[in-house]
Simulated scan of single mutants.
Amino acid sequence: MKQFIFLLVCLAVNQSIYSQDITSCCAAAATEAFAQNGGNAAFRASHDEPRPFHYVSAAGKDISYQTSDGKNAHGWEVKAEKATPYYMFVVHEWWGLNDYIKQEAEKLGRDLGINVIALDLYDNQVATTREDAARIMQSVKTERAESIIKGAYSYAGKNAKVFTIGWCFGGGWSLQATLLGGSQAAGGIMYYGQPEKDVEKLKTLKADIIGFFANQDQWPSPQVVTEFAQSMQKAGKKLLLNRYEATHAFANPSNPNFNKEATEDAYGKMLAFVKERMK
C-alpha cells in the first residue's frame, strides 16, 4: 500500500512539473510574455486613453485577405502614388488598428513613397479604455497573429520587399514580422517593443533592425534592451540601437510624457534607415 501511495505521489509530481513546463513554454514567446503586462496596473496607467478621433482618408482603404488558418484578416492599405515593390507593414499599439494608426500609416506612405498595410492583429477589435486594451492584448495568440502576418506577405506578393514598424505591443510584433518575412524582409523598426531573446531565432533574420527605446521605461527595461543588443551581436545581426532619456510610449502625442525631441530624432533616423535600404 505504501508503494502504491508513493507511486501516486510521483505521478502527481511529474504531472505538475510537466504542466509547469508546458505553461512556461507557451509564456516564453516574447510577444505573449509582453502582452501579460496588461495585468500590470503601472503598465496600464502609463497609457493615456486616446481622445476621440475620426480620420478621413482619400487614399487609404480597408482590405480583407486570406490567412493560412482558413480565416480572413483585416487591414488598412495605402498604395504609393508611383508603382514600387516596397511595402511597410504597420503594427498597431495596444489600442488596436484605430484612426490614429491609419493616419500614421498614411503619413509613412507619403513620406517614403511606399505602399503601406496597417495590420490588424486584434481582428477588428479596437479598444478605447485601458481595461479593454489590456483584455484584448492578452487574448492575442501567437499562431493567429503569425497567420495574419504571413497572409499580409502573400497579399503583397512574392516580389514585395517589406519593412515593418510598430510601437509598444506592435514593436515586438514588428520584429517578429521581420523574422517571418525571410528574404522578403527589407528592414525592421521597433519602438519600445519586446525583443526576441532566442539567439538561434535571431540568426534567421535576413534584414537589419533599428530600435528606439527609453531609458526610463520598464516595458521593456533598459536591461532587457541591453540583453537584446548582446543577443543580436551573438547572432551576427545588425541592430541600430537608439536610446533616449524618456519614458514608455514617448513617441505617442497623446501620452503626457510625450517627448517631442526624441520623437523627431527617431522619426528622422527611421526615414533614413528605410530610404537607405530602398536604393
Rank of each mutant, 00 (worst) to 15 (best):
I136D: 01
I165R: 04
S183Q: 12
I117G: 06
Y244S: 03
G211I: 00
M1F: 13
K238T: 14
G268P: 03
T263A: 09
F169K: 04
N115V: 13
Y191H: 13
S147H: 13
A266V: 02
G193A: 06
A266W: 09
N72F: 03
M278P: 00
D111S: 14
A185F: 05
T67Y: 05
L121F: 12
R144H: 10
Y87P: 06
P52T: 11
I189D: 08
Q103E: 12
M278K: 00
D198Y: 05
A42S: 07
V126N: 10
S147A: 15
K161A: 06
A133H: 12
E77D: 12
I117M: 10
I148V: 11
V91T: 00
D111W: 08
Y86W: 08
Q216T: 08
C10H: 00
K82M: 00
S46P: 03
I5C: 08
Q66S: 15
Y65F: 15
A186Y: 00
Y191G: 12
Y191T: 15
A27M: 15
R110M: 14
A133M: 09
T31L: 07
L121V: 13
A152K: 03
Q138H: 07
G172R: 04
C25F: 14
I189W: 12
A73C: 02
Y155T: 04
D111L: 06
P222T: 04
F212L: 02
K201D: 01
L175D: 01
D62Q: 10
G113L: 02
I209C: 01
A12R: 03
L202C: 05
D62A: 01
A246S: 11
A152G: 06
S19Q: 09
H74E: 09
V224C: 09
A28Q: 11
K107Q: 10
S221R: 14
I209H: 06
L239V: 03
Q36R: 15
P253K: 13
F34N: 14
F43S: 11
Y65C: 10
L271H: 01
T31S: 11
V91F: 01
F213D: 09
A214L: 02
G170W: 07
G39S: 07
F169L: 15
E146Y: 14
P220N: 00
A185W: 05
E245Y: 03
I101F: 02
I149W: 14
H92T: 07
